[in-house]
């Protein structure tokens, strides 16, 4: 008895996993790199893997590693992780109303998995049809479990590298952050923010010292953005009818 596949059948768990495969392939090298860098920055294999399982946010984990050197107070590392992940606030505000047909426990689980690709794919689907929880879970769990596995493997094999300097590991994080930063260059006002943050962080590092240059530099850039303000939008028509 062949099952008739209706075109309107909502995508399920398996379809979510399949949809996640290209993203998994793109993320894999970073998972391995994260694990190797984590060990190079003094984390144990367990700590490196645990960080991936608990946070599940590549960029923020890399920032955390950069600051794990024993001199930076813990709360500032937590604050930096928070700052890098701050963009999720915008995702959760945008996707939240589309998930209201799920029970509360499903939504609580879903927030944990809300990464950049998860948001992008879910927002795309929400324009067509209600997002099924099983599809969301399949997509998210595939990424999550692979991320943990890659971190473990990276940490495991990273521990075997005996000359990290020769492989440039000490400069991989700045290079990675530069590539990420470069992706934002179309977002106005990119250059004023970067110039202000660069000057602020370099001066602060010389005058106040590490790790304060991160917060001070970032505040300089944010202040410039606030002063410049949002790109001018056409004024919205007043819609008050009551």
């Amino acid at each position: 008895m062949a099952e008739i596949s209706l075109p309107a059948k909502p995508p399920g768990f398996l379809a979510g996993i399949v949809r996640a495969l290209p993203v998994c392939a793109a993320v894999a090298p970073f998972g391995l790199l994260y694990g190797a860098l984590a060990v190079d920055n003094g984390l144990s294999i367990f700590e490196a893997t645990f960080m991936s399982a608990a946070i599940f946010g590549g960029a923020s984990q890399m920032v955390g590693l950069q600051l794990f050197n024993g001199q930076v107070p813990g709360w500032l590392i937590v604050l930096s992780i928070f700052a890098v992940n701050f963009r999720h606030i915008l995702y959760s505000a945008a996707i939240g109303p589309k998930l209201m047909h799920w029970p509360v426990w499903q939504r609580l689980a879903a927030w944990f998995l809300l990464t950049d690709p998860q948001f992008a794919e879910s927002a795309k689907m929400a324009e067509q049809r209600p997002v099924p929880f099983t599809w969301y879970l399949g997509f998210g769990l595939a990424l999550y479990l692979l991320w943990i596995l890659e971190s473990y493997l990276g940490a495991r094999f990273g521990a075997l590298i005996d000359d990290p300097e020769a492989l440039g590991l000490d400069f991989m994080l700045p290079l990675y952050f530069f590539a990420m930063l470069y992706d934002f260059r179309a977002r106005h006002p990119f250059f004023p923010i970067v110039i202000a943050s660069a000057i602020g962080s370099i001066v602060a590092k010389l005058v106040v010292g590490s790790p304060w240059h991160v917060s001070i530099g970032a505040l300089c850039g944010i202040a410039v953005a606030v002063i410049i303000g949002a790109p001018s939008e056409p004024p919205k028509p007043k819609e008050r009818t009551t």
């Binding site: 930096s80 990420m180 977002r187 923010i193 943050s197 240059h213 530099g217 970032a218 505040l219």
Partner: peptide
């Protein structure tokens, strides 16, 4: 809010 990622990333690269 939009400036946060670029600002934080810059402070990790520039110094």
């Amino acid at each position: 809010l939009n400036a946060v990622p670029a600002a934080v990333l810059t402070t990790l690269v520039a110094p």
